[in-house]
Design a protein around this nucleic acid. Structure first.
Lengths: 226, 226
DNA sequence: CGCTCTATTGATAAACCTCAAATACAGTGG
DNA sequence: CCACTGTATTTGAGGTTTATCAATAGAGCG
């Protein structure tokens, strides 16, 4: 489990021993693809950290339309916000592949912070980075056209879940056209058309729920200039 | 200055004396309408709190299109994020009316927190509420049509800057069609057309840069159901 | 092989933006 | 008080973008 240590921000500044101790104190669970960790609207109980695998964080509007906020992987947190404040979960967290997760309840977190105050600062940092990210996305959604946003989405996913392959960088999670649409604020039809065009241009390759970016450079250029 | 005490979250839990002490230790400035407190991209130096007046917080994209994130008024903070982290300001803050502002630099804030640790928690709370707000807005932008978003914008502004008048609730800041557009993710023309329709329906009244909501109930219904 | 879920593609329509032109308004200085 | 100037606003026409709907094809699984 120590191999995810480097990727973890929450416990930055702690020794490996202290880290192991904390991890051991958490509650461990495994999830299969499509398992739900928690539902938007449920009373928040715990803060989760991903050890292996990936989670999809989504929000539904009143009419049931889904928006994907983030995909998170090893070392990343979710429900940090709500678990500390006794709020309801503002989102749904769903496992998209076999995942191992460690969680702590509010009491445990406050105890941790008391012993290692640096954790509170790390937590603040994490939240600050996240707010900056959402604000960026909000700006993009306001000012950019669909195709540009799709490009940005693919690049974002590439950075957070990209695996090098001989053909290019593969996005290493099951990703349907619908998922990309929900992540970009558009429809699956528009995504399908757009990706078809990019396949013709040899920017990407794609099979069912799989995307490989074969020409990241072109995609970056396009994402920045339309 | 004590009259803004009730509205302030950052210093919640402190006595009036402690609060006065802290306010006194800050750096005080006044701004005229259209004055810029700080620019997006400048290195962040201070955390600002509004005493009187209002600020407009905006972000520009690369092509110069402006998006308004929030209008803030007495007791509210800005640059909390960046000032603590030595980041650049991620937004521009502009005074929209005569405003009095208190600010503290990073050193002062950390000193404050050391003396009154509750401030750190309050700060975390403020950031958490804000992230929740941005995420809500993001969801709305993804899933709702323009007119609905305009309705939500007016209601949001009504809640944060509404003044009761015999005619209805007036939004108490200079607010052009362009401003509403930048706040709703649309264009001034669409805003103008939409407001014209609502004026005909007697939901609102409007003069140059002034809006009064005469029928909040209809507007709320519309904002929720389209 | 049949079933289910995903993806493609075309036709159509709706939503919204862009541009142009005219009008209304507030403030300023004579 | 009035004309002048610079914005803000309105409205229409026309075009672009994107969503919607329908039909078909493809992929994976038991």
């Amino acid at each position: 489990m120590e191999d995810s240590f480097q990727e973890t921000d929450l416990f930055k500044g702690l020794s490996v021993d202290q880290y192991s101790e904390i991890i051991k104190s958490g509650y461990h669970q495994t999830f299969k693809p499509r398992d739900i960790l928690f539902h938007q609207g449920d009373p928040a109980e715990k803060l989760y950290m991903v050890n292996t695998g990936r989670l999809k964080l989504t929000k539904l509007n009143e009419k049931g339309k889904e928006v994907i906020f983030r995909y998170i992987s090893a070392g990343e947190l979710t429900a940090a916000i709500s678990s500390l404040k006794d709020w309801d979960y503002p989102m749904t967290a769903e496992s998209v592949e076999a995942s191992e997760v460690t969680s702590w309840d509010k009491v445990a977190i406050f105890k941790m912070i008391e012993i290692y105050p640096t954790i509170a600062l790390n937590l603040l940092n994490i939240v600050l980075v996240r707010i900056d990210d959402v604000q960026h996305r909000y700006l993009e959604l306001c000012t950019e056209r669909v195709e540009q946003r799709i490009a940005r989405s693919l690049l974002r996913l590439m950075r957070s879940a990209g695996k090098k392959t001989p053909e290019g960088i593969r996005i290493d999670l099951p990703l349907s056209r619908q998922n990309i649409a929900d992540f970009s604020g558009t429809t699956l039809f528009t995504v399908s058309r757009t990706l078809s065009a990019w396949i013709k241009k040899d920017w990407i390759k794609s099979g069912r729920e799989k995307i490989t970016i074969t020409n990241p450079h072109s995609l970056v250029l396009f994402s920045e200039n339309g």
